[in-house]
Structure formats: structure tokens, C-alpha cells
Amino acid sequence: MVGIGASNLRERSETLITVENLTVEFPGPRGATVQAVSDVSFDVQAGETLGIVGESGCGKSTTAKAIIQMPEPTSGVVTYRDSDLTTLDKAELRRMRTDLQMIFQDPISALNPRRSVWDIIREGPEIWGTEDVWTEQRLVQLIESVGIDPQYRDRKPFQFSGGQCQRIGIARALALDPEVLICDEPVSALDVSVQAQILNLLDDLQTEHDLTMLFISHDLAVVRNVSDRVMVMYLGRIAEIGDADSIFDNPVHPYTTALLSAVPGSGVRDDGSLSGELPSPLDPPSGCRFHTRCSDATEVCATTVPEFTKFGADHWAACHHPQGTPVTLRDL
């Protein structure tokens, strides 16, 4: 396996999650197979925020959810703190998942309309019998820390705004003291004036609770704001991964460039914007999956899957014709 799983090449802190050759397939219409994620490898360092970006259907959300085995991957290994999550039995997985919590895109759908805020937030401690750790006083503090007035703890979700519901969802996830928080488009359903509140809140809570975050978003400006490292996905594969500044300032994969040029104010020039339609994940293109829309594509792109090449201390891309010079070991 190439590069990106090999965190030993980088001098960073402790690796918390390692994903190797992750593949997720779903049964599609008429016996076909949806290749949602194909042979994806990466790792997540403790305490960092890894942003995952790409167009809808690129598999960014599925990749993150496959880490917590929802859905269970078709093949591949997901290692979290020395245990392979794909081989755990149901009880072990249940226990392990409390470490890996998630917040959702639609804050309202994420809360049971029939339960009170208090019941929703207390659910985790109640399941695990940790009410003695999560005393009433501590839960009240938690509710306060996400910016909800505890005096409204008996209200139902519909009495709160979208932004407040997202805060409640965050508190629910934190009530199990997780290590990892998967944020699946956490602000895209919110009003612009509320997005910044939630982003700042997540930033504060990350420091306060020492969280490692996977931040999935289609909004590149938001990802740039929150991420230490970034992973750009296209049609179930990683196009480019590495240090956020390095990728946003010097993208080498034509897809990353195209994506960035679509954002107003990105400063990336649009050289041959994406042509054509996103191909179907039922029948993804051969070789480099991006070759059908890439203005730099040549014959080799259609036949051979590009390997990952290193373009910086922490910057990898899978492209036959990258817009940058690879780094060799001698450069290091």
C-alpha cells in the first residue's frame, strides 16, 4: 500500500485511527453494485481535525460512517487504538462506539421529537449506567457549555431553533466523553448567521474535551477554517490528502484545483473547469476515476489507477499529471 497509511513517514503525534484499503459497496438497482468507497487508506492523528471534502456522491460521508461500522465496510481494516473495528463483535463494537460519536447535518431530524432535551442528553449516561459520573450538576454544566439555558431542559426539540437543536445534538454526543467526533455537514442546514456560532462552539469544545474531529463538508471555506489536514475525495477514491494549508495553497490534483476554483474568493484560477457530468458510482471510470472530466487526461489515466505520490512533508496526491513536483526522499 502506498504512502498515506504510512504515518511513520511523518513526524506527528499519535495516530488514533488508521483506515486501510477501505471499500464500501451497496447493492444498486437491477443487481448492480454501487461502489461508494473504493480502496481508501488514510490515518487520523489524535487531536487533529481532518476535513473531508468532495462533491455529493464522492463517498466522503460513507467513508466517515464506515469507520464507526455504519455501514459495515465491504472490505478493509479500520484500526482505532490497536483494535480492528471491523472484526469486533456486537458488544465490543457497542462499547467502542461510545468513543466515536457523531453530529448530523439535519439537527432537527437528529433529535427525537417526543423526548425532552434532558432525556436526549442523558441518554448516553443512562445506557451505560454512568449517571454517577455524569451527575445532574455535570449534565447541567454540559448543557450550559453548548449554549443552551438549562432552565429549558424539559422542552421538546420543536421549541428550539435549528442552531439550538444542533447544540443539543453536540451535547448528547459529548455526554459519553468521546475521543472522536464525526461532524457530518454540521452547519450546512443552518442559517449563515448561525453557522459561525456552531463552528466556534466546535472549536471551543475540541480544545476543552481534547477531541479528534472528522469534519465532512461540501463547503470548502468552512473546511479551510476548521481543518488541520484535508482529504479531497472524488467518486469513492482519495484524490489528494495532507496538510490543509499545503493543499489549499498549492493543490496538485486537477480535481482539487477545479473544486477550489469554483469557490468565490479562493484565489485559484479556473483552468479548464470541470467538463461533463459526474460519472455514476455504479460504473466508475477505469484508471483514474477523474479522467473523464480532467482537461489534462492522457491515455495512461484511462488505463492505470494512479499511485499516491508525495508533494510535501504532509501532502499526497494520486495523479498521473500533477500540477506540482513530487518530493523525493532526498529532499526531506
Partner: peptide, 13 residues
């Protein structure tokens, strides 16, 4: 299908 069920499962319910 709603996400609060996913959330509950993640909490270990």
C-alpha cells in the same frame, strides 16, 4: 431512517 435512531445506536442503545 431518522438520524436520532442512528444517534441512539451510536450511544450504545
Amino acid at each position: 431512517e431518522r438520524e436520532f435512531v442512528t444517534a441512539a445506536r451510536l450511544l450504545g442503545a
